[in-house]
Design a protein around this nucleic acid. Structure first.
Lengths: 376, 376
DNA sequence: ATGAAAGCGCTAACAT
DNA sequence: ATGTTAGCGCTTTCAT
């Protein structure tokens, strides 16, 4: 139907029969060649390929889909948001889908719309996708969604009824743990956490990592402040925490909130990292250039997408073969200048006192590392 | 083929004949009802709808596409990047496509791959999309690409051969002009510009707006520093400019570069905005929370996408009817604390001297406006 | 190793 | 207003 227009006018778009006629073979042979089916002699293949080339032939995907029951397309349910995490994941998915020879269809969930995921899913299934990936899952109170194609869930535990559900771990828990431990190892008595909205799986994953680290170090678990990923919510959280002089270290669930939080500290007259250390999450493009350059952790979006898609395609194409094992994701902590040992003694204020550390030492390399000196 | 699975097991997915049988009508009537064709009695319609509902019937899109030659889908050629601008545009496009009742297919251009746009386009046309939108176009030296479906180009001049090419202006030129004028009106003798890569249409658009403003004010046009949208490149540009004491105002083509640039100024011992003013472009989520809060302009991504898609769907569905006129995009300048009048006299240094302005006045509201006090 | 025939599930044209 | 008859351009049997 629709294809790159032929240069000189509009000879009707060629069909496989046209190719067959030109090559002097049956239409079925053309189909065989184009689908790389066995049992075609080399020179037959050549003749068909040449004829196809000459006519500028391209297969009609609708007809293929109708006849075969497969579309060679994968649908992604994504967030209708330009947040760095979801956007990066989407980019990674697009690339991975292309690499495995499929095409991508996108359905975004409508913000705030309950049942958004179910709606987006329904739209994709209507379109006949061969598999679905759910990026950045959010709880919607929907206990069970039934889907009749394989599903890849990025980062969440399976709660879908589908022929196959595969999962690729974003590794956020480990990253959150590393971020928190970095702070604890710097000597902070404990680490506060500014989380994302509870409905997000990402939020809970990071929370879990933070808790793990605190427990492993025997540190107290302070109450969690909940934000909404926005810098504005980080700022608000920052004002809240600034009132408590015992807070010396904060792990924010994303960089935007970390930046808002830092801003609030500065306005409250507290220095970062001298008075309070802050770690973000994501390593957004500007993280190395804000003041102070932000210590953060980096998520391997592309790796996760690639690995997840390999699994998905595997179950689509060989439902019966055992799944290949998933490789672990690397944990990348990027230490910059927003973290340092705690101040020698807690800032005056009520509440719990932080444990003074005599040997605060120069662990904190407060230099804007990573800041390059030449333009790329 | 693929649809939400029926709850209790797997009765074969119903076809339109099944619906027809159950409703006691012909298969064609089912088709008529589902396509909202005229000449169907009200009760016939009801019977069909009820039967469809009862069976959980959903039309097979592949069959529809094959029979009708249309897919009701739109393809978007986008950048394989999570940059705020392109990502926001993609989100806007997805929403707009959904709103007009189409579905979205995505093909990203491979970074650095020449002919990336052509390749992505070919993939989409292969898939039988009814229309294509080219987001954030880049020159690839491809003089002419022929496409046989309508094309919407976001922000660029038409250089495609297609049945119809429509354009929606992002309005970046006007925004760039407003950003530059803001600086000039603050009293700066001239405004330097850190641009994006020349191949991008966005870059040229912003350049044009900047030039217009300078000319309108009779200001000198300093040489352009070219970046690559990254904060790192803005940082490099900032080091370059920091060497020239006459520079008092800079307009960066996006916020990331502006933030990198500010960082370089601070490291060079120049204060923002006291010594040098900086305006960004995009109003990224953290812009209000970096130090100093960034003055910037905001692009109406959603509006542009919505308006452009309305045009595209119009030419797809009514190729012969005159195009509705496009509305102008609003120009939104967000003044924060990174801009102020120039310093009373130029900082010592060689080169052109800035014109001293005796009445620098308190135009610059260096307060972090917009910083909310409560969490959303 | 190659070909002929029969659909895939719809929409479109043409009756009635 | 409703039904009948052909395809749409492939992939799939099943022959040969």
């Amino acid at each position: 139907m629709t294809r790159l227009a032929r240069p000189g006018g509009s000879p009707p778009t060629p069909r496989s029969v046209d190719v067959a006629r030109l090559a002097g073979v049956s239409q079925k042979t053309v189909s065989r060649v184009l689908n790389d089916e066995p049992y075609v002699s080399a020179d037959m293949r050549r003749r068909v390929l040449d004829a196809a080339e000459e006519l500028g032939y391209r297969r009609n995907q609708a007809a293929r889909a109708l006849a075969s029951g497969r579309t060679r397309s994968i649908g992604v349910v994504t967030l209708g948001s330009a947040l760095y995490g979801p956007a990066s994941l989407l980019v990674g998915i697009e690339r991975a889908v292309r690499e495995v020879g499929y095409t991508l269809r996108v359905a975004a969930t409508i913000e705030g719309d309950p049942g958004g995921i179910a709606g987006a899913l329904a739209s994709l299934l209507d379109q006949g996708v061969d598999g679905v990936v759910i990026s950045e899952p959010i709880d919607e109170g929907v206990s069970l969604i039934s889907v009749d194609v394989p599903v890849l869930v990025l980062g969440a535990p399976p709660n879908f009824a589908a022929p196959q559900v595969v999962t690729a771990r974003v590794g956020a828990r480990l990253l959150a743990r590393a971020a928190t431990e970095h702070l604890l190892e710097l000597g902070h008595a404990t680490v506060h956490h500014v989380a994302g909205p509870q409905r997000w799986y990402s939020t809970r994953d990071r929370l879990a990592g933070w808790r793990e680290a605190l427990r492993a170090h025997g540190a107290d678990e302070p109450p969690v402040v909940e934000g909404d990923w926005s810098a504005a919510s980080g700022y608000a959280a920052g004002r809240e925490l600034a009132g408590d002089g015992t807070v010396t270290a904060v792990f924010a669930a994303n960089d935007d909130m970390a930046i808002g939080l830092i801003r609030a500290q500065l306005e409250a007259g507290r220095r970062v990292p001298e008075d309070i250390s802050v770690v973000g999450f994501d390593d957004i493009p500007v993280a190395a250039y804000v003041t102070p350059p932000l210590t953060t952790v980096r998520q391997p979006f592309d790796e996760v997408a690639r690995q997840g898609l390999a699994l998905l395609v595997h179950v689509i194409e060989k439902p019966d073969v055992e799944l290949p094992p998933a490789a672990d994701q690397p944990v990348e902590l990027v230490v910059r200048a927003s973290t340092a040992p705690p101040p020698p003694r807690p800032i005056p204020g009520r509440g719990r006192r932080a444990i003074p550390h005599a040997h605060g030492g120069p662990h904190g390399q407060p230099a804007g590392s990573e800041v390059p000196s030449t333009r790329p």
